[in-house]
């Protein structure tokens, strides 16, 4: 049971790290569009787009 004296503080530290990662993800805008990327990955076909039209 003595191992708990290490594990519990470790778990607190891990939660703090995860919390930090979460805050970073929010800050970098990863939660701004919750639906788009799910569709985008299916829509990403291999047809080459037309070359840019020349003016």
């Amino acid at each position: 049971m003595e191992i708990l004296f290490v594990l519990i503080p470790v778990s607190v530290v891990i939660v703090l790290i995860i919390g930090g990662l979460f805050l970073w993800a929010v800050k970098s805008g990863q939660f701004e569009d919750m639906e788009g990327p799910a569709h985008r990955i299916l829509m990403d076909d291999d047809t080459p787009t037309q070359p840019k039209r020349v003016q």
Binding site: E32, D33, M34, E35, G36, H39, R40, K52, R53, V54, Q55
Partner: peptide
């Protein structure tokens, strides 16, 4: 021509 980036937010 001349468009550098476009990004559309679905929601």
């Amino acid at each position: 021509p001349g468009v550098l980036a476009i990004e559309i937010n679905y929601s």
